[in-house]
Write a protein that binds this DNA or RNA. Structure first.
Ligand SMILES: [Zn+2]
Length: 303
DNA sequence: GTTGCCGGGCC
DNA sequence: GGCCCGGCAAC
């Protein structure tokens, strides 16, 4: 289990900081999956068949186990703080029709990449003059960024507001029309808007549904280890579900344009889609897709 | 200051 | 081919 840290091969230079940070001191990396599976009732596989064939960005290891760990912790917490709003939250997100209404996808953390961008068929219709054919959008059971590593949630007073929630903002062309008003620090509805994404983790802990109380969830996302004294400060990875509506997919590429950066083929800009780096954070570089590690175009969340 | 990634280097 | 970083532009 320790093999993931500092890459086995790193002749070049070892990150003094990044790698070192969690290299050997993976104190945070250790999870204790106590009673993970106790509910094998979840019939849904980690990843819907739909995107299962989308390749192999990462070896099928680590992921599964990650998920499990996550689930384990998660469940634990739930049980522990049964009464916390956390429950309410988790639960609504799972509800099939509470938020999305008609459309609801079994969204997994990764469904992220396959909303409805037109392309993904056998051939991409419009692919900007990008030379690199991109290693194809890969996808597979990734570890859920949000939940991962949230092992210990230590907060006597539970008063965090810096929930990083999910980055997997779901967004159907029509479902989330305009109610995704997220502003309030204690964004209430943000939870709904954010919608589920529930990965296997979430699905597993589908508690009995009850009051759709959407309250600020005293979350404990911080993939970080222990920091976070009392007040949130740095905005390293406390990203909120901001996310703005996406322009309808239209692939009318400009054609003659000297542009050549990352302007996103379809008109999406860089910030629109979070990539491994942002999602997992610097401290979990090993979770990034290969391309991201190499500072290349992300292959996992590639739009 | 950060993130995403091209371009280019090394092996 | 894998691996990595400089450096740029977009945030
Ligand atoms: Zn990536």
């Amino acid at each position: 289990m320790n093999d993931i840290l500092s890459n086995p091969k790193k002749p070049r230079h070892s990150f003094d900081d990044d790698g070192g940070t969690f290299s050997e001191s993976d104190h945070e990396e250790e999870f204790y999956y106590t009673e993970i599976e106790e509910d094998d009732k979840s019939p849904t596989p980690p990843s819907p068949p739909t995107l299962s064939h989308r390749d192999m960005a990462r070896p099928p290891h680590e992921d599964p186990e990650f998920q499990r760990q996550i689930v384990g912790s998660f469940r634990q917490h739930n049980k522990g703080l049964l009464a916390l709003s956390q429950n309410g939250n988790g639960n609504i997100r799972n509800s099939p029709n509470i938020n999305a209404g008609p459309i609801n996808i079994p969204t997994s953390p990764m469904s992220h990449q396959k909303y409805s961008w037109s392309q993904q068929g056998p051939a991409s219709p419009s692919k900007l003059p990008r030379h690199s054919p991109r290693p194809s959008t890969s996808s597979a059971p990734y570890p859920s960024p949000t939940y991962m590593h949230q092992h210990h949630y230590n907060s006597p007073n539970g008063h965090h507001q810096s929930i990083q929630h999910s980055h997997l903002h779901q967004q159907h062309p029509q479902s989330v029309t305009s109610n995704s008003v997220h502003h309030s620090p204690t964004s209430t509805q943000s939870s709904i808007a954010t919608l589920s994404h529930s990965a296997p983790a979430a699905s597993t802990l589908s508690l009995a549904g009850h009051t759709p109380t959407m309250h600020l969830a005293p979350h404990h996302p911080q993939p970080h280890h222990h920091t976070v004294p009392t007040q949130s400060h740095h905005h390293q990875q406390i990203h909120q579900p901001h996310h703005h509506q996406q322009p309808p997919q239209q692939q009318v590429v400009g054609s003659s344009s000297g542009q050549h950066h990352q302007q996103s083929p379809k008109g999406r800009t860089r910030g629109e889609n979070k990539k491994c780096r942002k999602v997992y954070g610097m401290d979990h570089r090993d979770q990034w897709c290969t391309q991201c590690k190499w500072k290349k175009a992300c292959s996992r969340f590639g739009d």
